[in-house]
Amino acid sequence: MKKYTNTGNKDTRSGFGEGLAALGKINQNVVALCADLTGSLKMDEFKNNHPERFFQIGIAEANMIGIAAGMTIGGKIPFTGTFANFSTGRVYDQIRQSVAYSDKNVKICASHAGLTLGEDGATHQILEDIGLMKMLPGMTVINTCDFNQTKAATIAIADHHGPVYLRFGRPKVANFTAEDQKFEIGKALNLTEGKDVTIIATGHLVWEALQAAEQLEEKGISAEVINIHTIKPLDEAAILRSVKKTGCVVTAEEHNFLGGLGESVARTLTMNHPTPQEFVATKDTFGESGTPEQLMEKYGLNAEAIVKASEKVIGRK
């Protein structure tokens, strides 16, 4: 089985910050908006390099989304930055009417997604955002797995015309994808080849899936790990190709099992190739305070949980 090396833990939000800074230099139409979280979103470099293209909105997310929508009318490509909760649930109707329904080229960039922002607790830990965003017609939904991929995705979405939700996180997580990767929206990445079970993961759970695959290998189980960075549009062909070979699937995400990647995969399978599936995800619950590692363990989102789910789903074949 192909092995991946962690080149050192890094936060995905810093990948966004570096990507945005790079974009600032190569695309004059890129503007950045932030609702009083410039440091948390790692937008300082863009802000310092291009003060005239950086807009501090204050703690007013609804206004930020509207202003971003308006800027596209003058040909700008706005990147908004705040926490995932305030990027989605708080401003859902603004995104729905002024961005998605109005076909505006806004990039909604959301840090601190899921449980792993940690100690701040459930008010800040949104586990529903993928569902909210994927339900909006025309919205592209991306959840990157590590620093390098987040940076590549940030740069890539500027060239995609249409609204995008880019989701990343706060903690330092394994950085294992290539530094010079080309990011292709909507293209699943097969990380390992396997024949017994397909593990479809998104976000930093891709690394957990790779760890799980190694543990499964020791038990004589061959797992095929697929990195789904784009939840919508979903690479259905890649999923079906793998599942037809393995006959069962585990989905893994830092999100509620209602409305997340797992449900999108389940719909694809139900319509094309009904297959046993297990969900590594939160189970219709809010989060709580704790360290990221504690929360991943308590809510069953780590490699051990993926191993268990894999063994269970193989038994259901």
């Binding site: 005239e52 929508a69 308006g70 800027m71 040909g75 700008k76 009417q97 002024s98």
Partner: peptide, 25 residues
């Protein structure tokens, strides 16, 4: 028509964005 409207309260933010873009341009 340059923006959808109907759900109230959103137009001024959009207009500000368009006005800021005019300044940049």
């Amino acid at each position: 028509i340059r923006i959808a409207s109907g759900s109230l309260g959103q137009g001024m933010s959009v207009a500000i964005g368009a006005a800021e873009a005019k300044k940049l341009n």
